[in-house]
Computed example of a mutant assay.
Amino acid sequence: MSDSMIRLDHVTKLYGNVIGVNDLVTELPTDSYGLIGPNGSGKTTLINLLIGHFRPTIGTVEVFGKAPTKNRSLLRHVGLCPASDVLYPNVSAAEWVRFQVRLHGFSRTESKRLALEALEMVGMTKSMNRPMGTYSLGMRQRTKLAQAIAHRPQLLILDEPYNGLDPIGRSEMTTILKQWRAEGRGLLFASHVLHEIEAVTNSFLLIHGGRLLASGNLNEIECILAGTSQQIRIAGPNVEKLLHRLAGVPWIESLSLTQNPRELKLAVRDSAELYRQLPGWVIADNLEVETIRSSDGELDALFDSLLRHHRGEAG
């Protein structure tokens, strides 16, 4: 099997005149990755390309060195937990998962054993013989995960796996995915919620508008964004006193003042320098600062910064 888990070579997928993904280029060794982007960014299109449901309009897709559309046996090595609900209401989880494993070529006896092990792993043993039409959304999500992992794939692909899970279910899901990662298997975890992925892996692929904006860990992405402005808001009854301090400062790209609430909005290229000088200004000018809010860690702000970086608007 190839050392490369996923390879995308200038991959574009068109739906008529609509672009699903646009010129994706990356190569990923076997590891765990978060595929993160807002709804409609191209995450599900990319997943469908990886499992061979879609054929790229331009470029080539390889999973473990093979094209998914030409090598259907490749699916034996891939497990998919889709975002859509694909369960059958009159069939039990035990029957459904066992049937899914059989489709990968396992014997009846082996399929039953693997299905039971997977359902136990996701906490569905007590309910596995009930019709799936009686399940809650969280139980259906667990059952989908069970069928994705039951045949012991080398790559597990999950599309919004936390949908419908309560806090306990989310914690249990995170534990399962961490264990999967610890076993050295591949994981591609699609979500639009950054902290969900951060709990499992610190390696990211950031996709927006069908384009891959950045890839790497958080430190590497921060390096990409070095020199890109952050949005910072400082609120308080007399924050206008800061205007004379900030006017003409080279690392301030823009500043504006709102009246109600009284808030100073800044676009700052060097936030560290702002935070270094701000305490002195507060004391010297007798400022009353109630809140300071930064865009750090906010997904929308991160994508906005990356988009401006790609358009050449940073720095």
Rank of each mutant, 00 (worst) to 15 (best):
G315E: 12
A301L: 04
N286Q: 11
L218Y: 09
H77G: 05
A284F: 04
L49Y: 00
L242Y: 07
Q147C: 07
R276A: 10
P153S: 05
P68W: 01
I232D: 15
E220T: 02
P237L: 11
R76I: 04
L75G: 12
D300E: 15
P89C: 05
L264F: 07
A94R: 13
L188D: 13
T45L: 09
A67C: 06
G65A: 10
I58Y: 09
C81M: 07
I149G: 13
A115D: 10
S136Q: 08
T57Q: 09
Y88I: 06
M124L: 08
L8W: 02
S171Q: 08
P131H: 08
R140S: 04
S191I: 00
F54A: 11
L188S: 03
Q231E: 15
A267V: 01
I283P: 14
D296E: 10
A314L: 09
W251I: 01
I221D: 12
G52F: 00
G105L: 12
P167Q: 01
Y33R: 14
E220C: 09
R211Y: 04
R181A: 07
N286A: 11
M128D: 12
V61Y: 05
G209W: 07
R7Y: 00
A272H: 05
I207C: 02
S111P: 11
W281V: 02
D300K: 13
L212M: 09
N286M: 09
F303T: 00
E263N: 07
M121P: 14
C223G: 13
M5G: 02
V289P: 09
H310T: 00
G16T: 02
E120P: 01
